Structures are given as structure tokens and as C-alpha cells.
Amino acid sequence: MGDYHVILYVSPHCDNCQKARQFLENRGINYEEKSIRDPGARGELRYKTGRIECPTIDVDGHIVVGYLPEKWDHLLAEEPLRMT
């Protein structure tokens, strides 16, 4: 896997958030978890996406709202979005 900065936005009692954690952990991906219960994290998520929906993953500024494993796999592939 590539070397990414991954942020996972979650909310309490969210089944898909737990699936998202398992997805990342099963792939050995280090991530920073932010709870939308925290006003700073909630505001940050709203700024990035225009809404508050969990789980949301942010991989080096590329965001997918919702637990969508196929899209997450694409973002976390060996060579994604690295063209400059």
C-alpha cells in the first residue's frame, strides 16, 4: 500500500463506521480517526464536503462520503492520484 495520510470521520453507534474501521485495519492502513461529536472535526468535515455524513474517508485530500469499499480500494491503490 502507498504512503498516505488517511482521515476517517465517524459517528458513535454507526454500523458502517465500524465496517470502515475493519476495512482499513484489515488492509494494515494507518489512519487518523475523527469523531463528529467533536465540534472541530464536525466543522472540518462540513468544510470539506458541505455536509456531515459518516463514515467519510479523506485520503490526501481525496474524499469519499459513505462506506463504499470499491471506491476506497481505488483511493488506496498502489498508484492512485499521484500524477503531478
Score class of each variant (00 low, 15 high):
Asp38Phe: 02
Pro12Gln: 07
Glu70Gln: 07
Gly28Pro: 02
Leu45Asp: 05
Leu81His: 12
Glu25Asn: 11
Gly50Phe: 13
Glu53Gly: 14
Leu24Gln: 05
Arg46Glu: 13
Asp15Ile: 15
Glu44Arg: 02
His74Val: 14
Asn16Tyr: 12
Ile52Lys: 07
Glu79Thr: 14
Ile52Leu: 11
Arg51Gln: 15
Tyr47Asp: 15
Gly43Arg: 04
Glu70Met: 03
Ser11Val: 07
His5Thr: 13
Val6Gln: 00
Gly50Ile: 12
Asp15Cys: 10
Ala20Leu: 09
Ser35Gln: 07
His13Arg: 13
Ile36Ala: 11
Pro69Thr: 10
Ile36Asp: 09
Trp72Lys: 03
Asp60Gly: 01
Trp72Gly: 07
Ala77Thr: 14
Asn26Ile: 04
Pro69Cys: 12
Glu32Cys: 02
Met83Leu: 15
Asp38Glu: 10
Leu45Phe: 03
Gly40Thr: 13
Glu25Arg: 05
Asp15Trp: 05
Val10His: 02
Ile52Val: 15
Val65Arg: 01
Cys17Ser: 11
Tyr31Asn: 04
Leu68Lys: 06
Gly66Ser: 12
Cys17Trp: 00
Pro80Gln: 13
Leu24Pro: 01
Pro80Ser: 15
Pro80Thr: 15
Ile36Val: 14
Gly61Tyr: 03
His13Lys: 11
Glu53Val: 08
Asp3Gly: 06
Gln18Met: 08
Leu75Ile: 03
Thr56Pro: 01
Lys34Pro: 00
Ala20Ile: 03
Leu68Asn: 12
Val59Phe: 00
